[in-house]
């Protein structure tokens, strides 16, 4: 019986190794037709962090503290109907399997936007933004060690 439990554990481990994450979704769909994909590596984030002053053009919000704490970012957006639903489903499965916490959900006239985070009360280790906006689906996923309060303050400043 012990051996059987070990076999099951090994099988579960192997399945979790195949399981989806931001990188695997990016790798799978970044070369599809009609998909625009951006990957920013930890090394690039270190370089960006060296730029002395980083402020958004629109409302002058300082993104530098957040940017310095990021370690990787995957952005996918597409209006290709063949992959839109697939990306949305896989991203939804990914946040569910990795036990991301739903930060916000908004639905309006068939459009849907969801934000998820993973981490604890003080630190965000992962963030996922998933939006179905008319004919476009967007998936933004980033990892890092982001101060939760700082992140929430910055993002809410962006809405003003």
């Amino acid at each position: 019986m012990k051996r059987f439990a070990l076999i099951i554990a090994a099988a579960v481990l192997s399945l979790s190794a195949i399981a989806q994450d931001g990188k695997s979704i990016y790798n799978k769909y970044s070369n599809e037709e009609g998909v625009s994909a951006v990957y920013i590596s930890p090394a690039m984030f270190r370089l960006i962090g060296k730029i002395p002053e980083i402020k958004t053009e629109e409302n002058g919000v300082d993104l530098s503290p957040i940017i310095r704490s990021l370690t990787g970012m995957y952005i996918i957006s597409t209006s290709n109907p063949k992959v839109r639903e697939k990306i949305h489903d896989e991203a939804s499965r990914f946040v569910k399997s990795k036990k991301y916490e739903l930060l916000m959900e908004a639905k309006d006239n068939g459009e849907a936007m969801n934000m998820y985070t993973i981490g604890n009360d003080k630190i965000i280790n992962g963030f996922v933004f998933l939006a179905k906006d008319g004919e476009e689906t967007s998936f933004i996923c980033f990892d890092g060690n982001i101060d939760r309060k700082q992140f929430e303050d910055t993002v809410s400043s962006l809405t003003k």
Binding site: T56, I75, M104, A106, F129, V155, L158
Partner: peptide
């Protein structure tokens, strides 16, 4: 690009 991503997140919010 990061700025655009955050702007999108801000719009969603």
């Amino acid at each position: 690009q990061v700025e655009m991503a955050f702007s999108k997140i801000g719009d969603g919010l």
